[in-house]
Amino acid sequence: MKRLLAALLCTALPAPGATADRPAGIAAAEAIAKAALGENCDMNGMEEVPMAGPEAEGFAHSVYRFSYKPAYDPDGEDVQAELYLLFCGSGAYNIRNAVVLKTSNDDTPKLIAFAMPDVDYSYTDDNRNRLKAEPTVRGFRATPLLVNAGFDEKSRTINSHTAWRGIGDAWDSGEWTFRSGDFVLIRFEFDPTYGDPLPDVPESYVVYEAGR
């Protein structure tokens, strides 16, 4: 049990060879995200994005290190992983993030794409405060960008929360957990209705939820 718990622990310590301010590997992670995402990851034009700290307010990168047992060799050596949660840019009230993962069994870091439900719904009128029917998932798409993302080290789960407008009355939120080298969607919830909530309208809809 102790060995299993140790394998699941995550830390936010700098990677070997890094400085406290600029961990090793961050430049490569930035280059991968910029090359793949173009202007969607211009990092607000900053020459050097700071590392996360108490004053960064989300306009910063974070680096996490952890180890895991690969599914193809559960009795073998742990795989060492470095996860880069990158600041890609911001709008009026949302921050765009990309995630790059580097593992000890792969020479090249990879940009992570996240499964996202394609939700079908329609409003009863132009007020957009009530749906005609329960929303349904008509498929899934992949996105390399998350919004207002964070990483929970204990559960190894990435979460996102998108405000559809500044006051945040309409929104969507997702959770993806790390399983043997990949991030798997486990929950997606959204509130597509605007304005003050009506008493007979659900506060939000959970359109996808999987076992953890």
Results as ranks from 00 to 15, higher is better:
I32V: 15
M43A: 15
C41N: 06
A31W: 02
A31C: 03
A81E: 00
G76Q: 05
Y72W: 06
A29S: 06
M43I: 10
A29H: 01
G45M: 05
D73Y: 03
L37K: 04
D78T: 12
D42C: 12
M46R: 15
N44I: 01
A35L: 13
A98P: 01
L86F: 12
E77W: 02
G53P: 02
A92V: 01
M46K: 14
A33S: 15
V63Q: 13
D73N: 14
V49C: 08
A29R: 04
I32S: 09
Y68C: 09
A28T: 07
A31K: 13
V99M: 07
Y93L: 01
V63E: 07
T103V: 09
L101S: 07
E57V: 05
A29T: 10
S67E: 12
E39S: 15
R96K: 12
R65L: 14
E48Y: 00
A81I: 05
A31Q: 06
A52I: 07
A27L: 09
S67W: 08
V100C: 04
R65P: 03
Q80D: 09
L37E: 11
A56P: 01
A36L: 06
Y64E: 04
G91W: 01
Q80E: 14
Y64H: 11
A28L: 04
M46C: 01
A98L: 06
S104P: 08
K34R: 15
E48R: 11
G58K: 03
V99T: 10
Y72A: 13
E55W: 09
V99H: 03
L83P: 01
L101N: 00
A98G: 05
F59W: 08
A52L: 06
A28R: 03
E82Q: 15
M46H: 12
A92E: 08
A60G: 05
M46S: 08
E55N: 02
E48K: 10
A56C: 11
Q80G: 10
A36C: 02
G76I: 13
D42E: 14
Y72R: 06
E57W: 01
A29F: 09
D106E: 13
S104T: 06
V49G: 07
N44K: 13
R65W: 09
P54M: 08
N40K: 15
D42F: 12
P74L: 11
D107Q: 13
Y93F: 14
V49Y: 03
G76L: 10
L101Q: 07
E47K: 14
P54N: 00
E30S: 04
E39Y: 11
A29I: 09
Y93D: 04
A81H: 08
A31I: 03
V63T: 14
A92L: 07
Y64S: 10
V79F: 11
A81Q: 01
P70A: 05
V63R: 09
V100H: 06
T103R: 14
N40L: 15
N44Q: 11
E55L: 08
Q80W: 10
S67R: 15
L37N: 02
A98I: 04
D107F: 09
A71R: 13
E57A: 12
G89N: 13
N105E: 08
E77Q: 06
K69P: 00
G58D: 03
S62M: 10
G58Q: 05
A56R: 00
A52H: 12
N105T: 10
L37R: 00
R96A: 07
N97C: 04
A81D: 02
Y93V: 05
E30C: 10
G58M: 01
G89R: 05
Y72Q: 10
